[in-house]
Amino acid sequence: MSLTPLLDTLFPQGHRVQVAGQVITGEATTAEGAVAVLGTTDAAAIDHRMALALAGFVLDTVERYPGRPLVFLVDTSGQALSRSQELLCLNGSLAHLAQCVDLARRQGHRSLSLVTANAVSGGFLSFGLMADRAYALAEAQVRVMDLRAMARVTKIDHERLLRLAEVSPIFAPGAESYRRMGAIEAIWAEPDAGLLSAALAEADASDRRMAEGRSRGGRQLAEVVAHTVEMAVAA
């Protein structure tokens, strides 16, 4: 779905959103009140400029509109793959963006992200996965790497990965795997203003992805292991 009909559907009460160089910034009205809208479009490969534009907009929102919820629209193919980007420490700019989102959370801004098309690897980590809760549209592609590339890198037979992907959400690409593992709260059949408002009302600052992943059967070990380490009696 292209951006304008998506925005019209998510925010029927109105929106004012700009797109510059694949970066979305603006505001919209929801049943929960005014929200900041930001994200990327057209499978953006996140570079310094995009990360800093998003980070700056988060800081502006924290400064000018205390408490205003943040709605992230996620469409990223990952991070920009270039020597000049790495030379200037791209991981540092992505970390800065993540810190800005975390600051907003600590200052009382609820946040949710909606994966509209693609969510891949580093581009997803710095932003979509930093929201209080993440959601995905049914047709969204969520992954670290596709199985063919994974077969090449891990030197494991592609057929075998395909068979395992049918039973294991641990490495099968797709939004449903991420839902079962607790990182995506729910998958929406289509964009929906009512679901968005309900999701905003539910968002809270706790990271409960491990518990969700366990109760949904996708990640059986993480919560138990983390809890054991956290609570172990000192020797």
Binding site: L129, R143, M150, F171, D207
Partner: peptide, 14 residues
């Protein structure tokens, strides 16, 4: 860790 790609990505986010 690509062999556990989704679990690894979510863990890094955590």
């Amino acid at each position: 860790r690509l062999h556990e790609a989704n679990a690894g990505l979510i863990a890094i986010s955590e």
